[in-house]
C-alpha cells in the first residue's frame, strides 16, 4: 500500500529559506542545505523547494541551491518557481530536481504542461494551484502571481484540465489558509481529490498533527507544511508516529 507522504516545503529567496504569512513579510528561517539534510534525517518523504526570487540573479542562486541540496539528498526533490517554458524546467532538472512545479505560466499557457510532460514525463510535471474561495462562496478561483492577481478561473476545473494536459501531480495550496495555521481547506481538498485521478498534495494552513491527518482523510496523497518544521515546533518523525497511531500507512 502506498504510504502517505509528509513533505516539508522550503520557500527560498536568493539562496535562503524564508516563510511568511501569505508570502508577505518574509522571515528568515535558515539555510536550505542544512534544513534539507535535517528533514531527510527526520524522515521526510520528499522535499519541495519553492523559489520565490524575483530577479534573474536570485533564480541563478536558486539553481545553485538545488545543486547543493541534491548532492547530499537521497529523497525526491520537487522545485517550483519561475518556470515559464520547458527549458526552465530542464535547467532545474539538470541542477538536480526530480520534479518541477509550474504555476502562473501554465495558467497563461496551458500547453506548457503538455510540453513539459512529453519531454520529461508526467511524474515530473507538477501543477501548483493557488486557490481562494470566490466572492459568491460557490467555489474556488485560481490566484496567480503569488496572490497579486485573482482570476475567474474555477480551481477545480483547472485542476482537471491540468491533469488531462499532462500534470502528474497537483500541489494544491489554499490561499485563504496559507500562513493562518488553522488547518487545510478540507472542502477544497475533498473536491479536487474526488475530481482528479492524480495524486494531490495538501498545502496551506497546517500547524498541528490533527491538520495533517484531516488533510489525508480528505483525500490528499501527501501533506505539505513549512513553518511548523522550520521553527522546530515539531519533527517529521513525531508527525509520522501520530499518523501511524491513527491508522495511516506511513513509511517506516
Amino acid at each position: 500500500m502506498l504510504a502517505a507522504r509528509i513533505i516539508p516545503c522550503l520557500d527560498v529567496r536568493d539562496g535562503r529559506v524564508v516563510k511568511g504569512v501569505r508570502f508577505h513579510g518574509l522571515r528568515d528561517a535558515g539555510d536550505p542545505i542544512a534544513l534539507a539534510a535535517e528533514y531527510e534525517a527526520q524522515g521526510a518523504d520528499e522535499l519541495i523547494l519553492l523559489d520565490v526570487s524575483a530577479t534573474p540573479e536570485g533564480r541563478r542562486t536558486a539553481r545553485e541551491t538545488v545543486a547543493a541540496v541534491r548532492a547530499q539528498l537521497s529523497i525526491p526533490l520537487c522545485v517550483g518557481g519561475g518556470v515559464r517554458e520547458a527549458d526552465d524546467a530542464q535547467a532545474l532538472l539538470v541542477a538536480g530536481a526530480d520534479k518541477v512545479g509550474i504555476n502562473t505560466a501554465a495558467v497563461r499557457r496551458p500547453e506548457l504542461l503538455t510540453e513539459i510532460s512529453e519531454r520529461f514525463g508526467r511524474q515530473c510535471t507538477v501543477i501548483a494551484i493557488d486557490a481562494a474561495r470566490n466572492a459568491a462562496d460557490t467555489g474556488w478561483e485560481v490566484v496567480i502571481l503569488s496572490g497579486k492577481e485573482r482570476l475567474e478561473l474555477d480551481a477545480v476545473g483547472w485542476a482537471c484540465r491540468a491533469a488531462e494536459l499532462g500534470a502528474g501531480e497537483i500541489l494544491l495550496t489554499s490561499w485563504d489558509r496559507d500562513g493562518t495555521r488553522i488547518g487545510y481547506d478540507l472542502d477544497l481538498l475533498r473536491t479536487v481529490s474526488a475530481a482528479v485521478n492524480v495524486p494531490v498534495i495538501a498545502s496551506g494552513g497546517a500547524s498541528t498533527p490533527e491538520h495533517l491527518l484531516a488533510g489525508l482523510q480528505a483525500g490528499a496523497s501527501a501533506v505539505l507544511a513549512a513553518s511548523i518544521f522550520h521553527f522546530g515546533e515539531t519533527t517529521v518523525g513525531s508527525l509520522r508516529e501520530y499518523l501511524a497511531r491513527h491508522g495511516v500507512e506511513v513509511r517506516r
Binding site: 500500500m1 502506498l2 504510504a3 507522504r5 518523504d45 501531480e169 485521478n197 492524480v198 495524486p199 496523497s221
Partner: peptide
Amino acid sequence: PDSVRVPQMGWNK
C-alpha cells in the same frame, strides 16, 4: 488501471 491514482507517486513496500 484507473482504480488507483496514476502516476503511482510515493513510497511503497
